[in-house]
């Protein structure tokens, strides 16, 4: 199984490679990718440097061009595909069918991976992208349960990549406009969710309030750990109850089902977190490398090591992890 790791900058890319990534995914410095955060991502010089570094070590580079261009800025997406093809990346990760149509017609040899933002959750959606754009791989949205992924893998015309670890989108990716409803900017259009520019933190007495475009997302008492005000993780009111209306702030961690993912035939495991620090990337990749190697060496003897869990829990959001939709405790 290929371990696909995030890099928001060159130090993260190095951390991923040193700690055992098989492939690294990254984005250009603009809204053509779904982590369009200031201070992140790669200009042409940095990308070429990264590519050389990775190639020398036999590591693949995938470029995420996985947002949805609007007409006025179409040229940016076209240029991003041109640059990726020109420097010879191993694959581009794409979501928009216009971008795919451009890429497959202009660069028939360029490998296309369907981004999670493409929102393909079933075999006929995969057939659509395979037949029309010859995609080689698809990243599956974090909405399917393990048996559903199993059946999908049996019939899929392309390799499947799943999210193994990191922040958890609870909505079907590519079909969530919550962020643009509150802030005007969304993952599909701008490559951001709950953007930092819309965030405000304010202390009122002992209570810390977090807001997005002035909408109150959460209130924290002094004994609570405050989290970034991601919309779907806020505490809102339904009737008289104030609670995490959509989801608790937790991270996805699938270490315990690594053997099952392998048996199902999942070809690649994705670590989320291009926005995270090189130290985070290094730590997480190290654990996953060890786990995959331990499993490959003796599948029957594989069990989750406590040291792995401790290392991962330390870096997880809200210090809690979950199997998310794979196990569905809420089902």
């Amino acid at each position: 199984m290929e371990l696909v790791c995030p890099a928001g900058n060159f130090p993260s890319l190095k951390a991923a490679v040193i700690n055992g990534a098989d492939a690294v995914y990254l984005g250009f410095k603009d809204e053509t990718n779904a982590r369009n955060f200031s201070g992140l991502n790669f200009n042409d010089t940095k990308l070429e440097k990264s590519l050389t570094y990775a190639r020398d070590r036999n590591i693949k580079i995938y470029v995420a061009i996985n947002t949805y261009p609007q007409p006025a800025a179409w040229h940016k997406w076209q240029a991003a595909i041109d640059r990726a093809a020109d420097i010879g990346v191993n694959a581009v990760i794409v979501a928009d069918i216009g971008v795919m149509d451009y890429a497959v017609n202009k660069y028939p040899d360029l490998n296309l991976h369907l981004s999670v933002q493409g929102s393909a959750t079933n075999v006929d959606a995969l057939n659509f992208y395979y037949k029309n754009f010859n995609i080689k791989r698809a990243v599956i949205p974090r909405v399917l349960a393990l048996p559903q992924i199993n059946r999908l893998a049996e019939k899929s015309p392309v390799d499947l990549e799943v999210f193994a670890f990191g922040s958890l989108c609870i909505m079907a990716e590519g079909r969530c406009h919550l962020s643009s409803y509150i802030t005007g900017e969304s993952p599909n259009m701008c490559g951001v969710c709950s953007p930092a520019s819309a965030v405000a933190w304010k202390n009122t007495g002992d209570v810390l309030e977090t807001r997005l475009n002035n909408v109150l997302i959460d209130r924290y008492e002094p004994d609570e750990n405050a989290g970034y005000p991601t919309l779907c993780k806020g505490r809102f009111k339904v009737g008289d109850n104030v609670y995490h209306t959509l989801e608790e702030p937790t991270s996805l961690n699938t270490l315990s089902i690594l053997p099952e993912l392998h048996k199902i035939g999942v070809k690649a495991l994705k670590i989320e977190g291009r926005q995270r620090s090189p130290a985070y990337v290094g730590q997480v990749v190290k654990v996953w490398r060890e786990a995959i190697d331990a499993y490959t060496k003796s599948p029957e003897l594989f069990s989750e090591r406590t040291s792995w869990q401790l290392a991962l829990n330390k870096v997880s959001e809200g210090s809690q992890t979950t199997l998310g939709a794979y196990s569905r405790p809420w089902q």
Partner: peptide
């Protein structure tokens, strides 16, 4: 969903795309 787009286009049947079929530009 794209599954329905696939089924209908394979049959050669004209279809309508709903609001969650992501069409953000003319090429799409």
């Amino acid at each position: 969903d794209m599954s329905a787009v696939y089924m209908l286009s394979e049959q050669g049947v004209p279809f309508v795309s709903g609001p969650f079929i992501n069409i953000y530009n003319a090429r799409s």
